[in-house]
Design a protein around this nucleic acid. Structure first.
Length: 974
RNA sequence: GCCGAAGUGGCGGAAUUGGUAGACGCGCUGGAUUCAAAAUCCAGUUCUCGCAAGGGAGUGCGGGUUCGAUUCCCGCCUUCGGUACCA
């Protein structure tokens, strides 16, 4: 009771106690802070456990009730593990570089660091409100130079390494240089650019510094190159593939176009295979793994070279997954951007080819996607030679062939591929069947692998499995092709033409990029006058005055993308203040990797793939001990909001806008074809929101008009009357408006006026109630709508819990008497249920478990401290505040959050008798209590002698009786 | 189209290895308390026939395996998420 005194409260003297969450929460928050209850040490003889949340981007809008869902779940898990004897690392930080702060800076001139700081403070306040057990002394911010120093450092390591395919890992570039100087690259098996030249040692040694450096860029794991990128003019930056959705930017929905630019890239393709196979070693949701597999897109096939008819030394390389169909090739298709188009095109066709290329270049991604079904293309006039039968194959260009995939060229087999078939039909090209099992060749392509080959030279009569190896052998012997594995994943563009990101620690000298000295890290963001590109189109960093390396060399002016800082942050938490390393060996050896990672599935192919890539690289360098950094991952589902719409007629009536009741609107749409628009309305104005009887009354119409003055003269028509300019004119005897709205479930967002702020919920019901209610809504990984109405149930439950500790007069009253058998049973049932359910991340059923236990104990009028003390420990991870209060009142030692989870004792669950359901033919007809130790025979006899059962067996043959001891009895009659 | 997940009361959802379908909560109905209301408490609440006792049906649809299926198998339908001229 000492504790109370330090808070200067006379609560201990006061016998009357009412459940007052606000007071309790304030008290224990302060106590936890003062006593550093959640501080974690890197030294402990307890086993380690690392529970990680995906850290948030601190947006200006603050948190809504959907955001903390995952944080609450992970907090419960972390607290549970702590009570169970683990040393738990449970940190939080901020992914604080990002576009919104910069957009805001452009508009207001306020430095993004200032706005970001403000947003972080707001986030922190909101998070603190909910009672998380983060060790805030380990907080990280990606935008702090002490953090991004190490992001830059890792970037430098990537630049200094290449991927050696023989070692199957990243090796220092110096080792490559040594090889090149001794034997050239003939024996170098490394991941590099497709067009890397074959060089000898003499070639290498004859190169000057600049040539050598440029040559090495073919191998480095990060490198600048000119390539086609997703350029977003509205945002003024390039975007990575995962930031583009349906041809528009994911953030903001601005159009994106293809543009050739010099960009830094990350050679993630070097790790494609390991990123794929590594998925089999982690416990992640299957759907998420599948998304990564699709994104990596491994396909096994062959690459085949087709020589040009007029220039046999020049060859077009294609990739195919169906080399067995090669005798069905009747034409060749190249991407319009393909580099050999100029060589191939004959003078006769040059004009048309140029026309087609100009046309495709002018089309946006969106247009291309909308017209997927339309067949377009252009003959080049050129031919290539079929490697197997020497026939002439016409070469076309067509935009269905993507420059970015494979070699940008396909061998077209119209009999087996629907797109090739469509193209062949359109341009009247031959369709040659190649398998005797192919059918309906006149109507569509048939991609079957069944049957025996026909029209196929030396593989005629063979089957698929026999033909493929023979074809590949034939090609390899003649150096005209080889078996090949192709990946869909592209190297990741790493440059952003923005201000608010990590500066790239590199400078340019004579057109060659060099790293700055490690001693010069961090390379801090310079001050600029404006956050816009320069007049010459350079990124904002180009505005920094006197910003040159060693006073003379130009720095790289682009910054790193958002995923840079988030690709390794989980290590920084282990050792957040280390000034000499990104993480110390001791720290990372102790914590190893993340045991449980919680976050949204929207990061499936972005953050979660890039971070695995960086981790594998750090693993190759021996800097981290685990090849996969997150053993188990759970996606929390989105909490959705109710969206309420008023129906606005698109056409004005006598110059007035007209809103109609939802059912009137529906009728008019169906019968008259009247067009309506859905106008979102603030859910607070809507009665029965979220149901199919939702409506707005006259008062609410007035509020709506005040809020949206552009509708102040609008007509609001419903079944009971018409509201216009402040007056409601009823039909017959209606009292007021009853304007039906349309309810939908969707995103919680400002634009739908349905955002619920956790602060408001906590203010009203308390953090414990908020936490438990979020969990109670349903399974953690499922999307579900937020509905504040249901929270009363949880609130009542907490009061009921409280009432176990008090008597009728609200006085604290617990008893030291020995609990009854039934009381012990309730407690131990709960202990088992909750630990089992937490282990399988079923938090919603834990909450109902608590309700059941408290209901049962209340019925028994249980106020035994022996029961109540264990009960609140089991509940502490869910409701940290009220359990701490009750723990202290019971005279518990230290904080409840440092107590031990009670041990489950099965003896308490043993029963003398068991209630058996008794079924006839599988349908329950009766139930009866029998001794727990009754034998099968006894149970059968007893069941058959029951009156309620004899009624069903009378006059029938008993064919079989199934007795499952302790479960059920089933009697089969016929 | 392809890949993944899911379909259970008025609603959120439970049923962990095939064993009493609908736990728990919301809402609703009735009652107690109250001058009244809020709050609280008690009872009921899958649908259906019936005054009741007691029947019948029932976990998206259609089949199957089984003494017994929300759970396993086959075929469909719907919804959500992802992805897409990927050769």
């Amino acid at each position: 009771m000492e504790l109370y005194q330090c808070f200067n409260t006379n609560i201990t003297n006061k016998k009357v106690m009412e459940y007052n969450p606000r007071e309790i929460e304030k008290r224990w928050k302060a106590y936890w802070d003062k006593n550093e209850v959640y501080k974690v040490s890197n030294e402990s003889n307890r086993p380690k456990f690392y529970v990680l949340d995906m850290f948030p981007y601190p947006s200006g809008a603050g948190l809504h009730v959907g955001h903390p869902l995952g944080y609450i779940a992970s907090d419960i898990y972390a607290r549970y593990k702590r009570l169970s004897g683990y040393n738990v690392l449970h940190p939080m930080g901020y992914d604080s570089f990002g576009l919104p702060a910069e957009q805001y800076a452009i508009q207001t001139g306020i430095h993004p660091a200032v706005a970001t700081e403000e947003n972080i403070n707001r986030y922190r306040q909101q998070l603190d409100n909910i009672g998380f057990s983060y060790d805030w002394s380990r907080e990280v911010r990606t935008s702090s130079s002490q953090y991004y120093k190490w992001t830059q450092w890792i970037f430098m390591q990537l630049f200094k390494h290449y991927y050696d395919q023989e070692a199957d890992k990243a090796l220092p570039i110096d080792q490559l240089i040594e090889k090149l100087s001794k034997e050239g690259n003939a024996n170098v098996k490394a991941v590099c650019h497709e067009d890397t030249a074959d060089i000898s040692a003499e070639d290498w040694n004859g190169m000057d510094e600049k040539e050598q450096q440029l040559f090495l860029l073919n191998y480095r794991l990060t490198f600048p190159e000119k390539s086609y990128v997703n350029w977003c003019p509205a945002l003024g930056t390039v975007l990575s593939n995962d930031e583009v959705k349906d041809g528009v930017s994911e953030r903001g929905g601005y159009p994106v176009e293809r543009k050739l630019m010099q960009q830094w890239s990350m050679r993630i393709t070097a790790y494609a295979d390991r990123l794929l196979t590594g998925l089999d070693t982690v416990d992640w949701p299957e759907s998420l793994k599948e998304q990564q597999r699709n994104w990596i897109g491994r396909s096994q096939g062959a690459s085949v070279k087709f020589a040009l008819e007029n220039a046999p030394e020049q060859k077009i390389e294609v990739f195919t997954t169906r080399v067995d169909t090669i005798f069905g090739v009747t034409f060749m298709c190249l991407a319009p951007e393909h580099e050999m188009v100029d060589v191939i095109t004959t003078d006769e066709y040059r004009e048309k080819v140029d026309e087609y290329r100009t046309w495709t270049a002018s089309r946006s991604e969106v247009e291309r996607m909308q017209e997927v079904k339309k067949v377009t293309g252009q003959f080049t006039g050129g031919y290539c030679i079929h490697p197997f039968n020497g026939e002439k194959v016409p070469i076309y260009i067509a935009d269905y062939v993507l420059a970015g995939y494979g070699t940008g060229a396909v061998m077209a087999v119209p009999s087996g591929d629907q797109r090739d078939w469509d193209f062949a039909k359109h341009f009247d090209l031959p369709i040659v069947p190649i398998l005797d099992a192919q059918e309906n060749m006149e109507e569509q392509a048939d991609a079957t692998k069944e049957g025996k080959y026909i029209n196929s030279g030396f593989i005629n009569g063979l089957e698929y499995a026999e033909a493929v190896p023979q074809l590949i052998e034939w090609l390899e012997e003649r150096k005209m092709g080889r078996g090949k594995i192709q990946y869909r994943i592209r190297n990741a563009v790493f440059s952003r033409q923005r201000y608010w990101g990590e500066p790239v620690p590199a400078y340019w000298k004579d057109g060659v990029p060099y790293l700055i000295d490690e001693a010069d890290l961090p390379l801090e963001l310079p001050t600029v006058d404006k956050y816009l590109p320069t007049e010459t189109g350079e990124p904002p960093l180009g505005r920094a005055e006197e910003w040159k390396y060693k006073g003379k060399y130009d720095y790289e002016l682009s910054t790193m993308p958002g995923w840079a800082g988030s690709s390794w942050y989980f290590y920084r938490y282990m050792d957040p203040n280390n000034e000499n390393e990104f993480v110390s060996k001791e720290a990372v050896d102790y914590w190893q990797n993340v045991d449980l990672y919680l976050g949204g599935s929207e990061h499936a192919v972005g953050h979660l793939l890039y971070s695995r890539f960086w981790n594998k690289f750090l693993f190759d360098l021996g800097l981290v001990p685990q090849e996969e950094y997150a053993k188990k991952l759970i996606n929390q589902g989105m909490i959705q909001g109710v969206i309420e719409f008023l129906m606005l007629q698109k056409e004005k009536i006598d110059g007035y806008s007209r809103f109609a009741c939802a059912d009137i609107a529906k009728k008019e749409m169906e019968e008259l074809g009247t067009e309506f628009a859905k106008i979102p309305i603030h859910i607070d104005y809507v009665q029965n929101y979220g149901s199919n009887s939702s409506y707005v009354d006259t008062d609410s119409v007035k509020k709506f008009v005040d809020w949206r003055p552009e509708f102040k003269d609008a007509i609001f028509e419903c079944g009971s009357g018409v509201y216009h300019k402040g007056m409601f004119k009823p039909h017959v005897d209606a009292a007021g408006s009853h304007l039906m709205t349309i309810s939908e479930v969707g995103k919680m967002s400002k634009r739908y006026f349905n955002v619920v702020n956790p602060d408001d919920v906590v203010e009203r019901y308390g953090a414990d109630c908020f936490r438990m209610y979020e969990m109670f809504l349903g399974p953690i990984e499922q999307a579900k709508p937020w509905d504040t109405k249901g929270i009363d149930g949880v609130s009542k439950f907490l009061r009921k819990l409280w009432s176990l500790f008090t008597n009728k007069n609200n006085e604290f009253a617990v008893s030291d008497d020995a609990p009854t058998k039934d009381e012990w049973k309730v407690l131990h049932q709960l202990i088992k249920k909750v630990s089992d359910d937490i282990e399988r991340f079923s938090f919603n059923t834990c909450v109902s478990g608590f309700m059941i236990a408290v209901n049962d104990l209340k019925k028994m009028n249980c106020n035994k401290s022996a029961i109540l003390k264990d009960l609140i420990v089991v509940m502490a991870p869910f409701a940290p505040f009220v359990t701490e209060e009750l723990w202290q009142r019971l005279g518990g030692q230290g904080s409840i959050h440092q107590a031990a989870y009670p041990e489950f004792n099965e003896d308490y669950l043993k029963e003398d008798s068991i209630e058996y359901p008794i079924s006839i033919n599988g349908k329950k007809r009766a139930s009866a209590e029998f001794p727990a130790d009754a034998s099968k025979d006894e149970l059968e006899k007893a069941a058959l002698s029951l009156e309620a059962i004899q009624k069903w067996t009378e006059g029938k043959t008993i064919r079989k009786v199934i007795v499952v001891p302790k479960r059920m009895i089933n009697i089969v009659v016929g």
